[in-house]
Deep mutational scan, measured.
Amino acid sequence: DEVRLHVNGHTIEFRGIDEEIFKILEEAAKRGADEEELRRLAEKLLR
């Protein structure tokens, strides 16, 4: 299960996240989070 999030012209792939987590990451990206911040956030949410 892989999703792709487009951030500042880059595509970031995440594996094993559900739609709810994806929406949180998408919102963070809209607020200016970079790839590293998004990955840290995803790790926290998946715990």
Rank of each mutant, 00 (worst) to 15 (best):
D1V: 12
A29L: 12
K30I: 11
E37H: 09
V7A: 04
E35Q: 07
L45N: 01
K44G: 06
A42L: 09
D18M: 04
I12K: 00
I17K: 03
A33R: 04
L46I: 12
L5P: 02
I24T: 06
H6D: 08
R40S: 12
I17S: 04
K44P: 00
E37L: 09
T11S: 09
R15S: 11
F22R: 05
R4E: 06
D34G: 10
L38A: 00
V7M: 05
K23W: 09
I12Y: 04
R39M: 12
I12G: 01
N8F: 02
L25T: 00
I21M: 15
L38N: 00
K23H: 07
R31A: 11
D34N: 11
E13F: 12
R4W: 08
K30Q: 09
R47G: 08
A28W: 15
V7I: 10
L38Q: 00
E20A: 13
I17H: 02
E37M: 13
G9I: 04
E19Y: 13
N8Y: 01
D34A: 08
K44Q: 09
R31V: 07
F14Q: 01
L46H: 04
H6G: 03
R47D: 08
D18R: 06
D18P: 14
I12R: 00
E36Q: 13
G16W: 05
L38P: 00
A28E: 07
I24W: 06
G32R: 00
G9E: 03
E2T: 15
R15I: 13
R40E: 09
R15W: 14
L5Y: 00
T11V: 14
R39V: 07
E35D: 05
G32L: 03
K44L: 13
E27D: 10
E35R: 04
T11Q: 06
N8M: 04
T11D: 11
E19G: 12
E19K: 09
I21S: 12
E36M: 13
D1E: 11
E26V: 14
R39L: 11
I12V: 07
E37S: 12
R15L: 10
I21Y: 04
L45T: 02
A33E: 04
H6E: 13
R47C: 07
K30N: 09
R39D: 01
F22S: 03
G16H: 06
L38R: 00
G9T: 02
K30C: 07
V7D: 01
L38V: 09
E27G: 09
E27F: 15
E43G: 11
E26Y: 14
E35N: 05
K23R: 13
H10C: 05
R31S: 10
V3N: 12
A29M: 08
R4F: 10
T11E: 10
H6I: 15
A33N: 05
E13V: 15
I24V: 11
D18I: 04
A42F: 11
R40Q: 08
G9W: 02
K30Y: 15
K30P: 00
R40G: 08
R40T: 09
T11K: 03
D1H: 13
I24L: 12
E43P: 00
K23Q: 07
F14G: 01
A33I: 09
G16E: 05
L5R: 01
E27A: 12
V7C: 04
L38S: 00
K30S: 09
D34Q: 10
E2H: 12
G16N: 07
E13I: 15
E13C: 15
A28N: 06
R39P: 00
F14A: 02
H10I: 13
G32N: 03
R40H: 08
I21W: 04
L5T: 02
I24G: 01
I12D: 02
N8H: 05
H10T: 11
R4H: 14
I21K: 08
R4M: 08
L5Q: 01
E27V: 10
R4V: 10
E13H: 08
D1S: 13
E37N: 08
E36N: 11
K30E: 07
R39K: 07
A28T: 07
F22T: 04
N8R: 04
N8V: 02
D34I: 07
D18G: 13
I21A: 10
A28H: 11
L41I: 10
E26P: 00
E36Y: 15
E19F: 14
E27C: 13
R31D: 10
E20T: 13
D1T: 09
E19V: 11
E43T: 14
G32K: 01
D1P: 08
I17G: 03
L45V: 03
R31Q: 12
H10V: 14
G16F: 05
T11N: 06
A33V: 08
L25C: 01
R40Y: 12
R47T: 11
I24R: 11
A33G: 05
K44N: 06
A33S: 09
E2N: 11
L46K: 14
R39F: 13
N8T: 03
R40C: 05
D18A: 07
I17Q: 02
V7H: 03
G32S: 02
R4G: 04
F14T: 01
K23A: 08
V3G: 08
F14L: 06
T11M: 10
E43Y: 14
R47N: 10
V7Q: 02
D1L: 13
F22Q: 05
G9S: 03
A42V: 13
A33P: 01
F14M: 04
E26C: 10
A29K: 02
V3E: 04
K44M: 14
I24E: 06
E19A: 14
L45I: 05
R40W: 14
A28Y: 15
K23F: 08
K44F: 15
R15C: 04
H10M: 13
E20P: 05
D18N: 14
F14I: 07
E37D: 09
D34Y: 06
L38G: 00
E2V: 15
A29T: 04
E37Q: 12
L38T: 00
K30G: 08
A28D: 00
E27W: 15
A28Q: 08
E13K: 09
L25P: 00
E26L: 14
A33Q: 06
I12Q: 01
F22A: 06
R15Q: 10
A42C: 12
L25M: 03
E36G: 13
E35T: 06
E27Q: 12
A42Q: 04
F22I: 08
L5D: 02
R4T: 09
I21C: 09
F14P: 01
G32I: 03
E35G: 07
F22V: 07
N8E: 05
I24D: 02
E27N: 09
G32T: 02
E43F: 14
T11F: 15
A42M: 08
K30A: 07
E26G: 06
F22K: 07
V3F: 15
K44W: 15
I21R: 05
H10E: 09
F14K: 01
L45A: 05
R4L: 12
